[in-house]
Nucleic acid binder design. Structure first.
Lengths: 123, 123
DNA sequence: ACTATTGTATTAAGTGCTTAATACAATAGT
DNA sequence: ACTATTGTATTAAGCACTTAATACAATAGT
């Protein structure tokens, strides 16, 4: 796994994001065993407690689960993963729309704007 | 002005956002004189220093300017306002796209998703 | 020239949050 | 049964940041 931690925001938040992205985007596969807390921490260059915190919080989404001494695993329930992916997308989109409205864009304008930018990116 | 401050995030940030939104969305008009720091603070129910901080930071965007004792004014330069509005939109959109990509959405998916949600909102 | 009103500077207290050191607990594997 | 390895709990230090009290500075208006 390719870790990418900066000091702009709390480390544990970035860990959560990156692990979750790894699962939801398919980098980790359902049922995979994760390396141990200490290994992951070493790999990412963070304190084990910090990694532990990230993983513990992730568990609340049921994306991963723990067997006390045999380690942590990605859920095998593809439904959960898909559901969370949709949910995440929804939250991101709603937040995005709210922000755009706050600076005075109507719904039509938003669609137009983003279409334009996405087109530009394709070039 | 209708202030809406919660304790989730720093007060001064929320003030910046709301004032900026007020300008960019057309609630405040170019050239308008703003109430004094102390008045605004009282109105919003915050400490004057906090309002001062928000206004001072806003000045860096050139949306408002100060005449030491006669008060603060919204810029009369409509260009600046429009430019900032576009810039803000761009930042919001780019950030949005990045987030969506991080959870595994391609550009096409993004457009599809948001189109769908916007359509739902219209109903 | 005076004074009220405006913006500004300084600084200290409070606060919440992150991180890290360390110790504890459970169990798979031998 | 032992031991190495796993996850977990506790707690304290550090840190950065926000907020607020207070004092200072400039000038428009009289």
């Amino acid at each position: 796994m390719q870790w990418n931690i900066d000091s702009e925001r709390p480390v544990y938040i970035q860990l959560i994001e990156q692990i979750q992205a790894g699962i939801v985007s398919g980098y980790f596969n359902p049922g995979d065993k994760l390396p141990s807390v200490r290994e992951l921490a070493a790999e990412a260059g963070v304190n084990p407690n910090t990694m532990q915190r990230a993983l513990a919080e992730l568990e609340q989404t049921e994306l991963v689960y723990t067997n006390r001494t045999s380690g942590r695993f990605i859920t095998s329930d593809i439904g959960i993963i898909k559901k969370l992916k949709k949910q995440s997308a929804n939250n991101i989109i709603v937040e995005f729309i709210e922000k755009m409205k706050q600076i005075g864009y109507q719904e039509d304008d938003i669609l137009e704007c983003i279409t334009k930018i996405l087109e530009e990116m394709r070039k």
